Simulated assay, not measured.
Amino acid sequence: MASDKLQHTAGICWISEPQWTRFLEVAEDANLLENSWQEWAEKTDEMITAFAEKGITVVKVPVDVEELIQWCEEKERVITSSSRAEFVTQLMTQKHTGVKH
């Protein structure tokens, strides 16, 4: 049953308010993101609620912008929603397995 719950849990990139400006500076898709951290946080919370209503738990995964930049550079990736999702998945995997990739 525990594995069933894990299958219905997803992570979302969570940027702290103090890092928001830096995040917008480096995100390739910044033009698609909200202009203020408050707007983005509200939209993220609405999305988490919508997924919860469908039985999917979405957890906020704190992301340090500088670590994200370094990871993307190592992987030769630009910072977009897909690379952020991959980074968050890796962070969640490390948390559950204790193994860094």
Rank of each mutant, 00 (worst) to 15 (best):
P62Y: 15
V78I: 07
E67R: 06
H96E: 14
T9N: 07
T57E: 13
L24G: 02
I15C: 00
F51K: 12
F51T: 13
L33H: 09
E86N: 02
L32P: 00
N35H: 09
E66D: 14
H101T: 00
Q70S: 11
N35R: 14
T80C: 01
Q90C: 08
E34N: 07
M47A: 11
E53Q: 15
I79A: 08
M47F: 10
A50S: 12
T21C: 04
S3E: 13
L6N: 09
I48M: 07
S82M: 09
R84N: 06
P62E: 09
E86R: 04
M1C: 09
E28I: 07
T89H: 15
I48A: 09
G98S: 04
L33A: 02
E17I: 11
T97K: 14
L6G: 08
E46T: 10
L32I: 09
K5L: 03
E74G: 01
I56M: 07
K60Q: 14
S82T: 06
T97S: 15
I69P: 02
S36C: 11
E74Y: 01
S36W: 12
E42P: 14
C13G: 04
D64F: 05
A52S: 14
E53W: 07
T93Q: 04
Q70H: 11
T93H: 13
E53R: 13
C13A: 08
S81T: 05
A41V: 02
S81W: 14
C72Y: 07
E86T: 02
L32S: 00
F87E: 04
G11R: 01
V58N: 00
K95S: 10
K100V: 13
V26G: 03
C72M: 10
E39F: 05
E25Y: 04
E76A: 07
L91Y: 02
A2P: 06
I79F: 03
Q70E: 15
D64R: 02
K95P: 00
A85D: 10
Q7M: 10
E53C: 09
M47L: 07
S36L: 08
F87R: 00
V63C: 11
E67D: 15
S16T: 15
